[in-house]
């Protein structure tokens, strides 16, 4: 069972839900932070990192002794990552999408590929019973986010295990990379005009991917009621509400879990998981 936690708008409580849900389950779980631009889950779960791997993307290297400056590599590149002049070739690795077109098209075999580092994937364990951890970290200045996310996801739990994925905000390629091929999406929103506007975009995204989904309303009572009417209208199940509570916000600010401050939340997160099992393909649920 792979559950991703997404939102559209940032700062609605994705990481709070991921961390607390993971720590409430009485079964083995793997949590993966796929918000590789700004990963925060580690601040709440304090994992011991046991292994680090680089995320590598191939980029072209031109052998100028073989190059005849025919410009075919420049013409096939849709990302303006290669410029060919009368007697030299300049590559722009930061623009390269690693499609390999230049290596395939070169008639002189003058293009080979070298490695460019996009970021790091770290894995380890959380000092709680049966919890594995993974996160991606995009290098500062890099733009190719989806390959880092895909590499984090390769560390998901085997077979029947539970994997929780903390997704990035937004609705474009990084979110798709995080949510794709997961069994259920939890959408976290706050009951404000901004929260609702971005929730609508997130719901469209999840429905495009055709993944079962449900809603958590965080900071309930903070704003207006429009999100409830929207959820009803769209047949969107409200799985849980977390109240607008300064004590919860203060716990969060220190990196504390809600369940370590308010014991009854553990049961609420366990109920959340049961509801998800009911809504998702039940065969995916561990007993």
């Amino acid at each position: 069972m792979i559950i991703s936690i997404a939102s559209g708008k940032g700062g609605t409580g994705k990481t709070t839900v991921a961390a607390n849900l993971a720590a409430s389950l009485n079964q083995p779980v793997t949590v993966l932070d796929c918000d590789v631009e700004e990963p925060n889950l580690h601040l709440f779960l304090h994992p011991e990192i046991q292994s680090r791997e680089k995320v590598i993307a191939p980029v072209p290297e031109i052998d100028l002794d073989r190059c005849t400056f025919c410009k075919k590599c420049m013409d096939i590149c849709r990302f303006n990552a290669i410029a060919v002049t009368a007697n030299t070739v300049v590559t722009f690795p930061e623009l390269c999408h690693s499609c390999g077109g230049c290596t395939v098209i070169c008639p002189e075999n003058a293009v080979t590929e070298k490695e460019r580092i996009l970021g790091t994937v770290e894995t380890g364990t959380v000092p709680l019973p049966d919890m594995n951890f993974g996160q991606g970290l995009l290098d500062i200045g890099q733009v190719m986010v989806p390959p880092v996310i895909r590499q984090v996801k390769s560390h998901r739990a085997p077979d029947q295990g539970i994997t929780l994925i903390d997704a990035p905000p937004g609705t474009s390629c990084p979110v798709i990379a995080a949510m794709k091929d997961t069994d259920f999406v939890i959408l976290v929103t706050e009951p404000t005009p901004f929260g609702l506007n971005d929730l609508k975009l997130a719901v469209e995204t999840v429905r495009l991917l055709n993944i079962p989904h449900g809603l958590i309303i965080n900071r309930a009572g903070m704003g207006d009621d429009a999100v409830y009417a929207y959820a009803k209208d769209k047949n969107l199940p409200v799985l849980m509400e977390i109240p607008y509570d300064k004590a919860i916000a203060q716990a969060y600010s220190k990196g504390d879990l809600i369940i370590s401050q308010q014991e009854d939340y553990k049961e609420k997160f366990q109920t959340l998981y049961k509801k998800i099992c009911f809504l998702a393909d039940s065969e995916k649920c561990a007993p």
């Binding site: 940032g10 700062g11 918000d35 631009e37 700004e38 995009l138 500062i140 200045g141 890099q142 733009v143 190719m144 986010v145 990035p168 905000p169 937004g170 474009s172 990084p174």
Partner: peptide, 10 residues
Amino acid sequence: GPPGIGCPVI
């Protein structure tokens, strides 16, 4: 601006 530090932020 957008959140994050990736492509749209740059």
